[in-house]
Nucleic acid binder design. Structure first.
Lengths: 346, 346
DNA sequence: TTGTAGGCGTTATCAA
DNA sequence: TTGATAACGCCTACAA
């Protein structure tokens, strides 16, 4: 499986009538080279179509200028959007990206992936796998210590690690408070699966807002879904059977909110007149539903960019023998108000 | 920016009381090693926590076991889904993935990306950038010849290259024929931007179906959108102004179909009673709209997997001095019929 | 300013 | 079956 390109630095050197070391000097620019020989070498490079072998360079530099990204659920809006931010920032900082996907994040073998990443000598790792169930414990502490710098996305805080995440609790609180401010008094929650950290946080935000207004937060106001639209649809039907006078719903993601809207349509409940609906994620389609969906926007691109920046700092720090102080960075999301809560204004 | 791991193959050799070559032999399994020494070496590896340096290995093997993937629009369903397929198949074949994103596929500099990929000695490249405008000409033929094996996704056929793509024309034909079979006679097209190859193909499929039934394919039955929902919404309004008796619409993607449905809702046109609507892509939300959206499903995961398989064959072939015959593989999509054309059956 | 020599961590060849 | 030895392509002291 060899590549086509056999021209090396010595070929260039020979053609330019210099030594390989001198060619290396013009390539890296780390030492001065006489202008005359410099142009001669550059022309030789041009004529030969020479391209430095980054594998060899990485070997001696002990740094590959590569970041490993481990993520999952890339077919969904959130993770893929975050990856776009990661790639953009990595690119600007001169890193390439090695991508690994967990196809079943609750069971896949993490050790093999980490082994490959370290074997390829990545300079750092971004762990963008959603925290579901116990999978946060998969990276054993002793393994963590032997790893290059690593940044976690969308995870619960853990001592000694760097974490970036959306402030899910505040986002849910904003959404619910918005419903309260509109005068809604029976506000149900379509929750996500509670083995997801995000789902628990969003539930907590909903609860905090309602308790602040002395409204009902009992379990009959909650139905648990699985993030999918169909579960949102079923959830609303179940809620209305038990509580026909519900006038507001906070769905823990837009997909489930979609199901809620669909159920409202077929049950002839007007949105927002009878029931106001808020989602979470602000997926691209949210704006164009009928009614358009009020939702919580996460700063996903910033999340990705921030992860790379933090990782970059950690890498630089370790390169100088020090270490970056670990910590948690929470990005506050914002509410995007649309027709599903305030009606159509035209 | 060094990694933490200074333990090399010689450390292992020393500890096991053998030479480095022998350790290499048990690692690669390419030559027999006495069972006794084998276990001794394995224990040394275990105790030292040794991990082979794949950079060094790649250097001497002249093969990195890495594939470069260049794509764009990853925040959309299609490209990200395809990437999932690519990653899964690459993983199964033992490749790692180097990911590059074109953030503005119509202007971004391609040469730099290709340079980096070849400099990192990827074994092959998957080019999954949508063909828009003239960007297919960006890889100059002479550059192409100096590249490792490469497979193109979603591109127009070109001599001497391997291409995998959805059969967009047939997909559009299926969608339109479905409307015809339902008895619709004034079937409009919401087309995509015509500098996209996919958009032109889908237009051609729509046209072919209508011509087969001797229906109106004149330009007044076509409005051009930009793939976004808002353009679909506007498109339907414009169409209905000029042709109030339209009874069917084929939208060139689901996003625009979403806009069409939204427009129908606010214009009080019943779907499908007054107007039947078909989209293209079968995005996850399509099933849960109201009415749920009839759409054309592409086999995106298969597309990604097929690309890797084809690329793998090409790499193997070149490794043996031969070459894989280039060619075009078209994957036929299928129609998913839902409420937006046949109504609700409950 | 430039050349030489040694080494980065592997694998492969050739003897033993 | 195993051990030296020489690459792989590049960078970097140290000399010149």
């Amino acid at each position: 499986m060899p590549t086509v390109q056999p021209v090396t630095i010595v070929d260039v050197a020979r053609r330019a009538g210099v030594s390989a070391g001198t060619v290396s000097n013009v390539l890296t620019g780390k030492r001065p080279v006489a202008e005359a020989t410099r142009v001669r070498i550059l022309r030789a490079i041009e004529e030969l179509g020479y391209q430095p072998n980054l594998l060899a360079r990485s070997l001696v530099n002990r740094s590959s200028n590569t970041l490993g990204v481990v993520t999952s659920g890339l077919e969904y809006y959130g993770p893929s959007r975050t990856l776009v931010g990661i790639e953009a920032q990595a690119n600007e900082l001169g890193y390439s990206l090695l991508l690994d996907l967990l196809h079943r994040p609750d069971v896949d073998d993490v050790a093999a992936i980490l082994d490959d990443l370290t074997a390829r000598r990545v300079d750092g790792i971004i762990w963008a796998v959603h925290e579901v169930g116990g999978n946060r414990h998969w990276i054993a502490p002793e393994r963590l210590r032997a790893l290059p710098p690593i940044v976690f996305l969308t995870m619960k805080s853990r001592p000694g690690t760097s974490i970036l995440s959306t402030d899910n609790r505040t986002g849910a609180l904003l959404a619910t408070q918005h419903l309260i401010d509109l005068g809604r008094r029976k506000i149900a929650l379509v929750a996500g699966p509670q083995d997801w950290w995000e789902a628990r946080e969003r539930l907590a935000g909903w609860q905090a807002a309602l308790e602040g207004a002395a409204l009902d937060v009992s379990s009959r106001m909650i139905v648990y879904g699985d993030w999918m639209p169909s579960s949102g649809e079923q959830a609303l039907r179940r809620l209305l059977e038990a509580q026909p006078d519900i006038d507001g719903v906070f769905a823990s993601n837009d997909q489930m909110a979609l199901g809620v809207l669909r159920a409202c349509h077929f049950l002839h409940r007007r949105v927002p007149d009878d029931i106001a609906v808020v989602g979470f994620d602000n997926m691209p389609e949210a704006e164009f539903l009928w009614p358009s969906l009020t939702s919580v926007r996460q700063r996903l691109t910033e999340l990705g960019r921030g992860a790379v920046q933090t990782l970059h700092s950690a890498i630089e720090a370790r390169g100088q023998g020090s270490a970056l102080a670990p910590g948690v960075q929470l990005l506050t999301p914002e509410l995007v108000v649309r027709e599903s809560t305030i009606g159509r204004n035209d």
